[in-house]
């Protein structure tokens, strides 16, 4: 059982530390496992520091998302390929991501949060951010995808011709 008043201190990769409620960290598989591995008394307030490989600015965004989703049911429901949809992002999450769009490096912010969600094993956040990125590239041409994802075309001319031939049927 997780008591709302229980707290855990997280130490970020750049040396900052923040104390959060266990009600928030219960969504993170990584933190919960770290606490379990420490085998400390759950009543200790705050718990021993858990080091996370995330910078504090990204962790702030993660905590903001966790705070909003603190009452979400656990475990996070696993969806099959058929059930997986990219257009079912909740309104708050959409606004949360839109807020980043005003930033200069919005794409990198998204990558940073995706990486953080992956490292901290927060399935809901990872799912939402992946869907957001998928929506950005869905329905785009190859060139548009390269531009959005900032990928360089490193194919040779022969390889490109072969790929165009392979993809010819799906261009129609």
């Amino acid at each position: 059982r997780i008591y709302p008043l229980m707290r855990v201190t997280l130490t970020t990769s750049d040396g900052a530390s923040v104390t959060v409620s266990r009600q928030l960290t219960k969504h993170s598989g990584f933190i919960e496992k770290a606490i379990t591995d420490m085998a400390v008394d759950d009543n200790a307030v705050p718990l021993s520091a858990v080091a996370v490989d995330v910078d504090d600015a990204t962790l702030k965004l993660v905590i903001e998302w966790l705070t909003e989703h603190r009452d979400d049911a656990l475990p996070y429901p696993e969806k099959t390929d058929e059930e997986r949809r990219a257009d079912d992002i909740p309104a708050w999450d959409q606004a949360f991501v839109q807020k980043w769009d005003t930033k200069e490096d919005q794409q990198q912010t998204l990558y940073a949060v995706i990486t953080a969600a992956d490292k901290l094993d927060i399935k809901g956040l990872l799912d939402m951010t992946c869907k957001t990125l998928a929506n950005k590239i869905n329905g785009k041409t190859v060139e548009e995808m390269r531009e959005i994802l900032q990928l360089e075309c490193d194919f040779t001319e022969e390889e490109l011709a072969e790929i165009r031939k392979e993809n010819a049927w799906c261009e129609n």
């Binding site: 590239i137 329905g139 995808m145 799906c170």
Partner: peptide
């Protein structure tokens, strides 16, 4: 289709 396009973005 997007997956196929994605496949053609880079090596």
């Amino acid at each position: 289709n997007s997956q196929m396009h994605f496949r053609a973005t880079s090596r």
